[in-house]
Design a binder for these strands. Structure first.
Lengths: 186, 186
DNA sequence: GCTATGTTTGACACGACTGTCAAACATCAT
DNA sequence: ATGATGTTTGACAGTCGTGTCAAACATAGC
């Protein structure tokens, strides 16, 4: 093999993710990605094909890291604490950046049309559901654990939307979270 | 006054709303609106100024009608039935159209950057919360009614996101809804 | 009918972004 | 060193959408 890639792929994808997170999938252009990664537009086309493919690769990295964090947050001994920590983790992710960038996966789910992107988001949510499901083991629930896990994931989506709408999202989302956990656990 | 508008404003705004709902705020262009309303692009600019102003007017109509429907759905005698009917109403709205168009306000909240648009969505959610709050009067709740109402609205946002991600949204959203109502009412 | 007033129309200039490509380039293997 | 291989680069042509404007138009009121 000669003719070797001049940029570091992992770095570039991490930078691309920042761009997507800041601007959203739709508004992000190949020009933005070129600027954000320092890689020429033509090179990006050559290496990946286009915006969607870049997104999918960047999102994969993101999803893996996000799930790692979620798993760690779900590790407390009490299931109430586990849940509250998990939601805190989600909220921190959602309101990260300044101005805050919102929830990447939610924004993507709502904005993106293409099926591969939709599938990537679905996979993240399914994986997340699974983590929550396992963390709910032994909790005193009104619902079956599967249902509860799904409801938890659904609630994180609700938070993501509220963040876009209301001011002082940390407080607002935190309050909503605590309300929810109180109803879910018995 | 001479020089009179040649199109019916209410009709045009209703048609514009369809366009926005189908394509989302961002993807909708003035060309789309011209095609959808049958009004020339130049006339739309002249009459309203631009896309955002048209959206705000169309969205107002939508919000009023949506809230009417929600209020009606929240009218049963039992608060459980009231809530379930309310969620059914939301779900029907979310999955209306083919292919289904999703939740207009959620999509708008997530897509739109401009403050007036954000404010319009916020108003709808606040109004919705108020309706739910009143409908929760006398319900046997774990939470304070205000908190419960907020959680209900948050949950409708979660549903809206799930609809974008999962297949067979009617079932999925319905299941999630029933889980939620079971946890909320005691 | 005429006029004043506001509306409609199509064309215009412009900017943003896309996707592609040939030429220049860098690197590896021999 | 050289050739083979894949990468980078900047330019190109094309598409789509914007916002504006002067001229043509329609109507209410006199």
């Amino acid at each position: 093999m000669a003719g070797v890639r001049q940029f570091d792929e992992e770095t570039a994808l991490r930078q691309a993710l920042e761009v997507f997170w800041d601007h959203g999938f739709q508004r992000t252009t190949m020009l933005d990605l070129a600027a954000g990664t320092g890689v020429q537009r033509g090179s990006l086309y050559h290496a990946y094909g286009g915006k969607e493919q870049i997104f999918l690769k960047a999102f994969d990295q993101f999803a893996a890291s996000f799930l790692d964090g979620a798993e760690a947050a779900l590790k407390g001994r009490d299931s109430r604490i586990r849940l509250l920590r998990f939601f805190d983790y989600c909220i921190e992710s959602i309101i990260s950046g300044s101005p805050s960038r919102g929830c990447l996966s939610t924004r993507t789910a709502v904005e993106a049309g293409a099926e591969p992107v939709r599938r990537a988001v679905r996979k993240l949510l399914d994986d997340l559901e699974e983590l929550v499901f396992q963390a709910l083991d032994g909790a005193d629930l009104v619902l079956k654990p599967r249902e509860a896990a799904r409801l938890v994931v659904a609630t994180t989506r609700g938070l993501a939307v509220l963040e876009r709408v209301y001011d002082d999202p940390r407080r607002r989302l935190g309050d909503t979270t605590r309300s929810f956990v109180r109803t879910l656990l018995r």
